[in-house]
Amino acid sequence: MINFFCPINTLGYGIFSYQLIRAYYEFVSPDVALIPLQVHGIKDPNINRWIENGINYSDKNPGIMLFHIDGMPQLKGTPKIGFPLFEWETFTTDEISILKGLDYILQPSAWGKSVLNKCGFDNVFIVPGGFDPKVYKPTIAFNEKLKRIEKQGLTFIHVGKYESRKNSELILKAFINAASGTNAKINLLFHVYNPFDKDWFKKIKDIFSAFGFSNKEEHFTKGNSHVIVPLSPISSDEFPEIYQMADFGIWASKAEGWNLPLNEAIASGLPCITTNNTAQADFIREGTYPSELILKTNYKNPQDLEPEAYVVEIEITEKILTLIQNPEKFLNLQ
């Protein structure tokens, strides 16, 4: 029996946890015990079985925890295998002390392993973050996409909590500016539900109001542009279909520990405007990924705990306009 101390939810790390446990259950052993840090939004009858196995777990069994570093002291097991989540390249003294208490450390990227190696940890192994290729794959033919675009306009998508690290506000303003610079009909699905910020939707409404958009519930409209901002989390079961409804993706993160939604979008056949910093550099590689879609990232203070990496708003706007002007060229990239 192996003990998993993990959250299972609709956020990136919750989905990643579920995928990790399910993969172990299906391909290694059914002896899985789940000590849930949180469970909601994912439907699988096996989850209740795993939780039942975890009620009387033994700390003599191996334990794995996928969570933030400050949660790692909750991990019990022999050995203790930590899968710490982080996005920056420096740690506090307390975080280093916590990491030293782990027997083994797992990371989803070569970037994460490199960061920990530089801090003196030689017990780090890569377990790549991923997606189910049977679920996330292109399903709409190129010609069908062109017909859809001609009928309803281009549709962009962004998925991720509304927060500074993900440059959510910058993406939204760049899209609004692009909309003002074209007569084309364009749409944006902006799924940025943030359970940790009670004012996230108000912040978005204020931005749209400042730019003269009309609003009805989760819909914002001005001229030929239409933005949908879901008020509640979208079920993970719905995302494969939602990605197929879009033509392009937009991400502009300052830093990422992996970025599961970006992986899923690309796997679904969506060319994406994105940064390629931190862990994203593992799969957004210069020389293989289209340079026209990669945003430049700059760090003002690389030694700070949370470096203020910044992306120039006008660059996002210009790339959006490039896709609007020549969608055929970039849709072929899938």
Score class of each variant (00 low, 15 high):
132 D>H: 07
84 P>F: 04
290 P>M: 06
96 I>N: 01
131 F>N: 05
313 E>P: 02
38 Q>K: 15
153 G>I: 08
274 T>F: 01
118 K>L: 10
155 T>C: 10
333 L>C: 02
202 K>I: 15
303 Q>G: 00
231 L>H: 07
37 L>C: 11
89 E>M: 06
35 I>M: 12
161 K>T: 10
62 P>A: 08
332 N>Q: 13
312 V>W: 02
196 F>L: 13
123 N>A: 00
8 I>G: 10
121 F>R: 06
268 S>M: 09
82 G>S: 13
46 N>I: 12
126 I>K: 11
206 D>Y: 05
209 S>P: 00
289 Y>T: 10
223 G>E: 11
52 E>T: 12
142 F>T: 03
258 W>N: 05
313 E>V: 06
9 N>H: 14
133 P>Y: 03
93 T>N: 06
101 G>F: 02
64 I>S: 00
26 E>R: 12
185 K>S: 13
285 R>S: 08
293 L>E: 07
165 R>V: 12
303 Q>W: 04
131 F>A: 09
253 S>K: 09
93 T>V: 06
87 E>L: 04
316 I>W: 03
15 I>D: 07
10 T>V: 15
69 I>N: 03
116 L>D: 12
290 P>H: 11
259 N>K: 03
307 P>E: 06
96 I>L: 13
200 W>R: 09
324 I>Y: 03
241 E>V: 05
53 N>L: 08
6 C>L: 10
165 R>N: 14
201 F>R: 14
317 T>Y: 00
36 P>G: 14
117 N>E: 15
220 F>E: 13
33 A>G: 12
76 K>F: 02
179 A>F: 05
260 L>Q: 14
195 P>Q: 08
290 P>I: 09
2 I>Q: 01
56 N>A: 10
302 P>A: 03
150 E>V: 00
58 S>I: 02
135 V>F: 01
174 A>F: 05
51 I>S: 08
44 D>E: 14
83 F>G: 01
44 D>Q: 14
224 N>I: 04
126 I>E: 09
52 E>H: 09
151 K>V: 01
172 L>A: 08
107 Q>E: 15
90 T>L: 03
120 G>W: 07
36 P>E: 14
78 T>W: 00
172 L>Q: 07
216 K>A: 09
132 D>N: 13
293 L>S: 07
16 F>H: 13
74 Q>P: 00
125 F>G: 00
228 I>H: 01
23 A>H: 13
153 G>R: 05
299 Y>I: 11
207 I>H: 04
160 G>W: 03
31 D>G: 02
96 I>V: 10
86 F>E: 06
90 T>D: 10
276 N>H: 10
25 Y>H: 15
108 P>G: 07
285 R>K: 15
253 S>G: 07
15 I>C: 03
66 L>A: 05
275 T>C: 01
165 R>T: 11
25 Y>I: 02
